[in-house]
Amino acid sequence: MTAVLFDNVSRHFGAVRAVDRVKLSIAEGEFFAMLGPSGSGKTTCLRLMAGFEQPTSGHIEIFGETAEGVPPYRRSVNTVFQDYALFPHLSILDNVAYGLMVRGIGREERRKAAEDALAMVKLPGYGERRPGQLSGGQRQRVALARALVNKPKVLLLDEPLGALDLKLREQMQEELKSLQQSLGITFVFVTHDQGEALSMADRLAVFNEGRIQQLGTPEEVYNRPKTRFVADFVGSANVLPVDLCRRLGLKASFASLRPEAVAIAPASNGALSLSGTVASRSFLGATNRIVVNVDGARIAVASPAANAVPAIGSPVTLSFAATDLHPMEDA
């Protein structure tokens, strides 16, 4: 069943088209990511799902029911806010139980449900504290428990990991993913971190300037970026300009080429090759990033750290398989 359906949805703020004719359909139980730079419309899409915004035009359905004109408090959708939005005047337990309290669930029952939810996010016994006494990571978990305790059909997460440090973020990514799998709830996740989107999502939509640039599985989006924007934003693929494409015998005006698909070596049979000079190099741990200048176009190569690093200015030959070169739309 379709959990969330956007049919040509637009949301304009004056002359600004925050969301522009977006079409998407999110399946029940899916972990769906909306990826894009700030101001690309991904958060507005999330707010349209939550009901904080109403579409200027188009149609939204949540589990088959029309969402336009339905206020947030009548949607079985819950949100984990970017800065958590915990109620500062309530204890952690009352924060988590808030959704049950406004639904009129009895004190004992909601207390038990809230304690279970806190245990689920690994914060048992924190109920009596105040939000101000918790760390950022703990508040994030409380926000998650507060949303999940209502057993929503769709959980919306607005850059929930943005404020956490790297270590905690990686840990929460894993926990979120396994939580989603065990609960079977549809998760819609907004992020500007392409690594996060690729590693967690079943499918993702890449947003730019209010429009979806590409919608697909992480593998599709990563390996076959449809537009130059996606190639650049998701994993910084090389974009080969027109003249290089022509030289390599392509019909399209632009093509993408992943840095890790390129080797600094003479071409073996069947492979394509280009030659240029080394412009810069930097050590990234597992790989060295070497940027090669090919007739003015800069092509990045992810070279395994074990390989020798050519000196800056030295001439090199780049080789890659023809199948790694993906023609793109001109957008």
Binding site: P72, N78, F81
Partner: peptide, 15 residues
């Protein structure tokens, strides 16, 4: 009062 607290209450089902 941060605006998102009001949104959070509404999101959690508060009229």
């Amino acid at each position: 009062v941060p605006a998102n607290l009001i949104e959070a209450s509404s999101d959690l089902g508060g009229t």
